Amino acid sequence: MDWIDFLIQFLSGLIVSLGFGIIYDIPKNNLFYSGLTGAVGWMISFVMIHVFDIHLFISTIAASFFIALFGQFFSRTLKTPVTLFIMPGLIPLVPGGVAFNMMRSFVGGDNASGAQYAIDTFLVAGALALGLALNSAVFQLFSTRNLFRRGRRYIP
């Protein structure tokens, strides 16, 4: 792979996330950061799959974890809700093409291919949720709040 392939993939993730950021009506001063979050997440997934030959499920977990991590960072830095960065950032990872192929296979009568596409679609969707949940758990565990001094459990 050439460096131009990586640049094209980065710009693709950036443009897709920016486009959905515009659709979600994200404020203009936060729009670039939400696009950057999506571009970084897409690049993590792309590099893990195409360079290191890691399975799509694992790479999607890692990418969604880092999308949530970047979202938390930008949220705290810019003092805005974290969903402004996470929602557009996850869009490039959503398995829309695989879901389309699943439906096309089922409608065309090819149930075996449709079932395989369904498994892939649900695995990627579950990986997105798992990556976000892992980030939330790690972030709560290493929160800057002193949990033990207050004498009670931290509940966000």
Rank of each mutant, 00 (worst) to 15 (best):
T121G: 02
F74Q: 03
V47I: 15
V98H: 09
M102P: 03
Y33N: 10
G96M: 12
T80W: 05
F142E: 01
S12L: 09
S64F: 10
R152I: 11
I8P: 04
F20C: 09
D2H: 14
R152G: 02
R76W: 05
D120E: 15
P88V: 00
F6Y: 15
Y24G: 05
F46A: 06
V51Y: 12
G71R: 13
V94Q: 02
G89K: 15
P27S: 14
I22H: 02
N135L: 06
I119M: 10
A137G: 01
F100H: 11
L128I: 11
L11P: 00
F6Q: 03
V40P: 03
Q116F: 12
W42T: 03
F142A: 03
Q72N: 13
Q116C: 04
L141Y: 13
V51W: 08
G13W: 01
N111Q: 07
I58D: 00
A99D: 11
A137H: 01
T80D: 14
L130A: 14
R152V: 13
D53R: 05
S143L: 05
T144C: 06
L132Q: 11
T37S: 09
G114A: 01
F6L: 12
R150P: 00
G151S: 03
R104W: 12
D2L: 07
T60V: 10
I4K: 13
F142K: 00
M87N: 14
A118G: 07
L147I: 12
T37W: 06
R145F: 13
N135P: 02
F70R: 07
F122N: 12
N135Q: 13
A99F: 14
L11M: 14
I22E: 05
A127C: 01
F106N: 08
G151A: 01
L141H: 14
F20A: 04
F73C: 07
R149C: 04
S34F: 02
F32R: 06
M43V: 08
L90F: 04
Y117G: 06
I58E: 06
G41A: 12
V16I: 15
T121C: 01
I86M: 11
S64L: 07
N111W: 15
L18M: 13
Q9R: 11
N29M: 09
F52Q: 02
F66E: 02
R152D: 07
V16S: 11
F100V: 09
G108W: 10
H55R: 02
F10V: 08
D110V: 12
I86T: 15
L56G: 01
L147V: 11
G21M: 02
S136W: 07
G71N: 01
F106D: 03
V82S: 10
H50Y: 14
I67K: 05
G126K: 00
A63T: 05
M87A: 12
A99M: 15
L78D: 03
N101I: 01
L31T: 04
I58P: 03
R104V: 08
A115T: 15
F70W: 07
N146M: 06
A115D: 11
P81D: 00
V138N: 03
T144L: 05
P88C: 00
T83A: 09
